[in-house]
Design a protein around this nucleic acid. Structure first.
Lengths: 341, 341
DNA sequence: TGAGCTTCTGCAATCGATTACATTAATTCT
DNA sequence: AGAATTAATGTAATCGATTGCAGAAGCTCA
């Protein structure tokens, strides 16, 4: 059978020192003498020693891992954020645990258990649509300092947050369409109750009015981030009395589904109507027509979130920490928008 | 500050029993008497006890978590597999760690450390393109039993594997195109050296010849699973002396990029050429034209992999375990394929 | 009645690393 | 030279749950 892997004791024996010295050599090399340092290093090599994290975690009361909580694992929007988080975490020797809110809820698992049972040192939540009950549990938890929201957030609750410039993005979208010559601009919103939906919609409305444009009520189409909502929105657009010449969708997925449905009904984008999205997911570039969108740097969002959380975990008392990071967005112009016909 | 969370000791004190009894009540309730069982349960409730996993992990020599290794976190193909894995793991009280091979390699982290340092009980690898050095390290590891490949695998190395019926899928693709009336069928392959690429290509060639069809060398277009490869393949197709009337691409992403590039050059799908993919990713349905594809049940792949691994972790000596699971595929016909013009 | 079982519970060692405190050796200072 | 300081290492307690072993209590049966 497999020989047990070696422990600090083994290394200590081989090097002829105490376990304390070995431990120190590993975690704080400059407090031991040059000679023991090399002796220990050699012993580590010959024994093939690997630290036992369970033991370390128990002793140090740290899990050296972070939980990332998604609304839905199967949604590609999040993967790049994960990449960013993971990159930053692994730099610092942390691992990344993943769970989806849906699942956690279904299995009756308590979210806080991750923190309470020493499985994770902190959590990054990518879901602003958490149950209010859950949110208030989080707020009252002992570990509030170690919870952070990214991308989405919960209005009213004050957790530190990393988010992109949603307002700015929506305004740029409107400006882009305006500068192409559009004066009748519609908006397909995200899901009711979602913070991003509200932020983007409000900014959209504000910018429309700032430009002095008309905004018919039917030009605000209620949707959500799903594919089917995009199809429904397209039908709503088709049924309009007075159709807008441009449509700003609250997400790329929505925009693509919107365009797809339109095309099934014989409309062409951008000839018949300009359509743009939000997010700039990988696929936007590949879509036909290539999608004009507002780009979120998802890698950066992930990295920033991880960074911020680690800071709070590793030095919990550094007070003046800015609890909000805002990541800039940028307009990416492609083929789905053009001057009105 | 935060009151420390309570421990077994606290529960024991409140219930008036020893820690041993509490522990037993929790893990093996039927060995303790009814009366103490209820007493302990109450004490658990009043103290708000949560088990400390670090302590349990140390004592039991289990991490109660599994590492999933991806080639690339930002690739949406994998998300649904993750969902499947995660679902199965959380049922059993395990957590899911995620890392990408790229990252692990970049950061000089040893892959086996996850197993050696008691961070994970096993790993599911979704990347068949691992460095041969790494693979042989894995083969010689103490923990070989706890490593499993899913989707992709490494030719020659014998790790347990979960994969889909790649050969069958490729044959069905050819048959589908054949039954539509196509006689000149091309194939855009995956990346050189990739097992999926070879398996699918070989099956494609075999089925073509079984049907007695001609296969010009230029009809095998070397690609990889990237978007740019799809574009390049489209240019190759356009440049062909004798163009095929149908193209079977080794992945959906490839097929979509292929179609996109074609459309930029004025070709229409399926009017000018039928195109199909492999995988049936979420977006295939939404693409224009909606993509005909070979569907892999990625959720099932994930669940199966997790199940198999857990079995091997929890009862390492159950010998006769079938070390390969094959997940069926199915043809999904949509709009991107039609009878030749 | 008391030997032999069963059932339930407690004692205490254990997993492997960290770290406060004590100890020893070496160096500096007056 | 002897006191005081510094540097390097060792001793042993500790983190919190699990579990082999043993003891106590209750039962059965001859």
């Amino acid at each position: 059978m497999a020989p047990k892997s070696s422990t600090l004791q083994d290394v200590a024996r081989v090097a002829g020192v105490s376990t304390a010295t070995v431990s120190r050599t590993l975690s704080n090399p400059n407090v031991v003498s040059e000679s023991t340092r090399t002796r220990v290093s050699e012993a580590v090599k010959t024994t093939g020693y690997r630290i036992n994290r369970a033991a370390r975690n128990l002793r140090t009361q740290r899990a050296h891992s972070v939980l990332v909580l998604l609304p839905d694992l199967a949604n590609p929007f999040f993967s790049e954020i994960l990449e960013g988080i993971s990159r930053e975490l692994s730099h610092r020797g942390y691992s990344m645990l993943i769970a989806s809110t849906k699942q956690v809820h279904d299995s009756g698992e308590r979210l806080l258990d991750y923190l309470d049972d020493a499985r994770a040192d902190g959590m990054i939540i990518l879901d602003g649509g958490l149950d209010p009950d859950v949110v208030s549990m989080l707020e009252n938890a002992r570990q509030t300092k170690r919870i952070l929201f990214a991308c989405e957030w919960v209005e009213g609750a004050d957790f530190p947050t990393v988010r992109c410039e949603n307002r700015q993005g929506a305004r740029e979208a409107v400006n882009h369409l305006y500068s192409l010559g559009h004066r009748k601009i519609a908006h397909v919103t995200g899901p009711e109750g979602n913070v991003l939906m509200h932020t983007r919609k409000d900014a959209f409305v504000a910018q429309i009015s700032e430009l002095g444009l008309e905004l018919k009520p039917e030009w605000i189409i209620a949707g959500d981030f799903s594919i089917s909502a995009g199809c429904a929105a397209a039908q709503a657009w088709i049924a309009m009395e007075d159709r807008s010449t441009a449509v700003f969708c609250a997400s790329d997925q929505l925009a693509m589904a919107f365009i797809a449905e339109l095309s099934r009904h014989g409309f062409r984008v951008p000839e018949d109507v300009s359509v743009m999205g939000f997010d700039d997911i990988d696929f936007a570039e590949q879509f036909i027509p290539a999608l004009t969108s507002i780009r979120q740097d998802r890698l950066l969002i992930g990295e920033t979130a991880a960074n911020m959380l680690m800071g709070r975990i590793e030095s919990p008392n550094t007070g003046g920490d800015e609890p909000i990071a805002i990541i800039p967005v940028s307009l990416v112009v492609r083929e789905s928008t053009a001057a009105p016909g």
